[in-house]
Design a protein around this nucleic acid. Structure first.
Lengths: 251, 251
DNA sequence: CGGTGGGTTGAACGGCGTCAAACCTAGTGG
DNA sequence: CCACTAGGTTTGACGCCGTTCAACCCACCG
């Protein structure tokens, strides 16, 4: 087992940190967002055995690299990740940001190698879900199988939405949509929808949205002048969410 | 059963047109590209029952529309499709082109409604794969399940590649990558790799690549002047595939 | 306190979009 | 068979948005 750098540990080694490993999913506060969403108690207990390991990933560290052999998918338990693909000549672009409850590594299934690199933007922790075992278990637990298919499909839709954004809109629109997306995902997780801290740099936002960091910075400044948001470094406060929504899909 | 407009028929009604329905997949010439890829004979026969219907879709007709309730995924049997998503204000963008052996409708799984609209670019035919039944069968036939997961993952990777292309490259690069992609997919299906007919308009290419149709046209003309390709309306001949590959990921 | 990484802001440039006109092709109907 | 039309394509002129380059600022940290 190759472990680039991240600490691997089995739950329970850190006494009392979380529920014992054998109850990984059924006890997890995220199970309404994750693979276990909507499962009844009986099914929940059957999938507990799936997560035998968790892994901590320090800020700036890679969970996996493009080209690494694929064995597992990961569920973000805490923290924040980016995934980046790269073009032949070395230019790289961010294809997504992942937060608690979201899956990582689905792109590895098709070729048995990860297609992109996943890097933690802050100290994070993931659940390691061995893929072959999950497939097996999916055959026994239809609700798990369905959830998995739904989540993969959701990834697809997300990527396609981003495609539309990149293909047919201007800078302000992209930034507006980006902020709204973050806001919604955070609020779904119980955080404030109108005030949050960006975990990524301007350059990373730009990479994600197909813009240069200067453009991101200028656009944020402009939105602040327009009283739509308040920006202070990485701290964002949304003042006029209506205006944001309007900008995100009009003009 | 709502049928927008496409003819639905069960195989066998058209006497002798194809193999009888009960052998849908095992007899299909595309089974090496499609869901049945790599299955052994025993498994092949088990999934034959999955495809009870085919459906013809005339040029310009929609196979499904964004928002339609999701019940089935589709495998392209012959012809050519585009899928388009739309932004709130009505602008729409093409998120993919699908040819024989490729799947359509995966984006519907997550919300039980299709997220985009699939339109035939030429008279086409698809296999209707009822999704619930496919999931059921996947639990009985692991190889089918694995194929399905692989195909979904491949979709993801494709979208992400396109994302990288849209986010960090210029017009020439996008067009070059687009032509190469088409060329590879066609040659995989036994067609000539260096000479083909585009099934889509310049505007559709532009929509897919995040460019205006004039830019597409100009770029193709420029590549012709550079002796990289020969263009005559929708007929394309690739003269210097090396140059194309270079343009597709450099500079 | 100086160093470093990230952020902001300004000025000039250029690629692509916009607008407009002409052309080419296929399909239709006389 | 040809005229007519409509949709698609090509090409040019021009202008704008975002990039590029550069200077400066700020926060954080050794």
């Amino acid at each position: 087992m190759s472990d680039h750098s991240g600490q691997i540990y089995t739950l329970g080694q850190h006494a009392g940190l979380h529920a014992p490993l054998k109850n990984a999913c059924s006890q997890c506060s995220l199970h309404e967002l994750c693979l276990a969403e909507g499962l009844d108690l009986a099914d929940l207990m059957r999938i507990d055995e799936l997560v035998q390991k968790r892994r901590r990933v320090a800020r700036q560290e890679a969970l996996y690299q493009a080209g690494d052999p694929f064995t597992a998918i990961y569920a973000v338990r805490s923290g924040f990740f980016k995934t980046e693909g790269l073009l032949g000549d070395g230019r790289e672009q961010i294809t997504g940001f992942q937060m608690a409850g979201e899956l990582l590594g689905l792109d590895g299934i098709s070729t048995e190698r990860y297609a992109c690199t996943a890097v933690a933007l802050e100290d994070s922790e993931v659940c390691v879900i061995p893929f072959a075992e999950m497939e097996d278990l999916g055959r026994a637990v239809p609700a798990l199988q369905r959830n998995f298919h739904r989540l993969m499909s959701r990834e697809l839709v997300q990527d396609q939405n981003l495609l539309v954004l990149l293909g047919s809109s201007r800078a302000e629109e992209r930034i507006a949509a980006f902020l709204l997306n973050l806001s919604r995902r955070l609020s779904r997780r119980g955080y404030a929808a109108s005030e949050f801290v960006l975990r990524m740099t301007r350059e990373e936002i730009g990479s994600y949205l197909g813009l240069k960091l200067e453009t991101v910075s200028r656009t944020l400044s402009k939105m602040q002048r327009q009283q739509i948001i308040e920006v202070q470094q990485r701290h964002i406060r949304i003042i006029d969410i209506g205006a944001l929504e309007q900008q995100s899909q009009c003009q």
